[in-house]
Design a protein around this nucleic acid. Structure first.
Lengths: 204, 204
DNA sequence: TTATTTATGATATAATTTTCACAATAAAAT
DNA sequence: ATTTTATTGTGAAAATTATATCATAAATAA
C-alpha cells in the first residue's frame, strides 16, 4: 500500500490488538482471521484489516494472521518489544493501586520508580519499589526512564508535569482531571475517571 | 437549528464543558466567551459553539455564555442536575481508591454502595459506606441505584456485569481490560489503563 | 493440474466529525 | 440614533474515520 498518514484512531486501537494477540499466543493459537479477531475485540473485520495494513501485509490470504509473528510486529511497531520502565508519581490511594496493578505486564511495562512528597511515605516500599522524594524526580534522567504515570492531586499536576519534562520524560499518563501544558514533543494521555462516569447518565 | 443527530463525540465532551462551567461558577464569573472557554478546555471556539448549539442557543451574541444558566442547562442535559448514586463493585486497591476519590462530587456523583466477594472485607467500612456481600448486588433494585463502577479482576467482570444488569443497573463504568457483553439498553464505558499507557511509547 | 474455498489487501464509498466563514445580533461607544 | 465592536449560531466545506466491495493470493481437494 502506498504511504498514508496513520490515523490516530488506528494507533489507539493497536494496543487492543496487541492484547488480543498476546492472549492468542498464550492459547497457542497459530493463526486468526480478521473475522475471528473482530469477534474478540468487538470491531468489524475490514477495520482490523485496514488498521493492520497501514503497517504492512501481515496476513496470509486464505489463512488469516499468524499469531506469533503478528504479535511481534505489533509490539515492534508500538515499541513494546523491549520492556518499558515507567515512573509513578504519587503514592496516594490511586498511586498505590496503580503500583500494584498487574495489568501492565501484558504490554511489558514495569513500574521502576515511585515518588511522593509526603515525608512519612518516603523510604517506605510498595511491593519491591522504595518511595522516593518527589524533589528527586530529576534522577529519572540518569535512569533512562522516559514514561511516567501521574497520580497526584489536580493542583500539583502541572508542576509535577514540568518536573517530569525537565527530567527527560517523553510520555505521561495523566490521571488528574486537568490539561497539562507541556512541550509538544511530550505526549500526554489523560484519563479523567469522573468525566467518563459523567457521560453515563445521559444514556440512561 | 433544525434537528440533527448529536455526535457521540459531542456527548463525550459535555462533561468537560460542565467541569469548566462548574469551576467558573466557583470563581463567580458571570459570562465566558467560546474563545476563553476554548483556552481552558484546549479545544477551538467553533467546536464549542457547535457542540453547545446542538442543545439550544445558550449564549448571547457579543457577550458569550452566561456561566450559571449554561452550567445548569448542561447539567440538565447530561442528567447531572440531580445527585446520581452509584454502586462500586470491588473493594480491592483500585476500588478503595475510587471509593475515596473526591473528584466525583463535581458532577454530583455519590458512591452509595460498595460490594466485594471477600468474606474478610464484608461489613468493614470505606469512609462511611459499609462493604456488602457481592451476592447481594440484587438489592440495588430496591435502592434505585442505576449506575455502577466495576473494579474487579478481569475474570470476574462479565459475571458481575450480568448481576448488575439483573439488578436494574443502566450504566457501567468498567475498569477491567475486557469487553462486557450486556443488553444494548445498558451503556458501558470502559477505561483500560494499561492500554492507554500502551499508546505512549509509539509517540516517544 | 485445475477448481474451489477462504480470507487478505487495496480501493471505493459512506458516514461522521471538525473546521471555516459569515450573517445575525446584542451591547457599547460615539 | 448611528456606528462600532464583540461574539454567537449555523450552513457548508473539509478532513477524518469507518464500512463495503472486489480482485487476487494461498491452500486444499478433486
Amino acid at each position: 500500500m502506498k504511504y498514508r498518514r496513520i490515523p490516530d484512531e488506528t494507533i489507539r486501537r493497536m494496543p487492543m490488538y496487541l492484547r488480543a494477540f498476546s492472549l492468542l499466543e498464550q492459547e497457542k493459537r497459530e493463526t486468526i482471521s480478521s473475522r475471528q479477531l473482530a469477534e474478540r475485540v468487538h470491531l468489524n473485520p475490514p477495520q482490523i484489516r485496514k488498521d493492520l495494513s497501514y503497517f504492512g501485509a501481515f496476513g496470509t490470504r486464505g489463512i488469516g494472521y499468524p499469531v506469533i509473528s503478528t504479535a511481534e510486529q505489533i509490539r515492534s511497531i508500538m515499541k513494546l518489544d523491549v520492556a518499558q520502565q515507567a515512573a509513578l508519581i504519587g503514592a496516594g490511594r490511586l498511586g498505590t493501586a496503580i503500583a500494584s496493578y498487574p495489568g501492565f505486564s501484558i504490554f511489558g511495562f514495569d513500574i521502576a520508580a515511585i515518588f511522593d512528597n509526603e515525608k512519612a511515605k518516603i523510604g517506605k516500599k510498595i511491593g519491591s519499589i522504595t518511595i522516593e522524594d518527589i524533589h528527586k524526580i530529576d534522577s529519572l534522567k540518569n535512569r533512562d526512564i522516559r514514561l511516567a504515570i501521574l497520580a497526584v492531586p489536580v493542583d500539583a499536576a502541572q508542576q509535577c508535569a514540568e518536573s517530569l519534562v525537565a527530567a527527560g520524560v517523553k510520555g505521561i499518563l495523566n490521571l488528574s482531571p486537568c490539561y497539562l501544558d507541556v512541550p509538544k514533543r511530550v505526549k500526554v494521555v489523560t484519563i479523567d475517571i469522573a468525566m467518563e462516569l459523567g457521560i453515563l447518565p445521559y444514556y440512561i
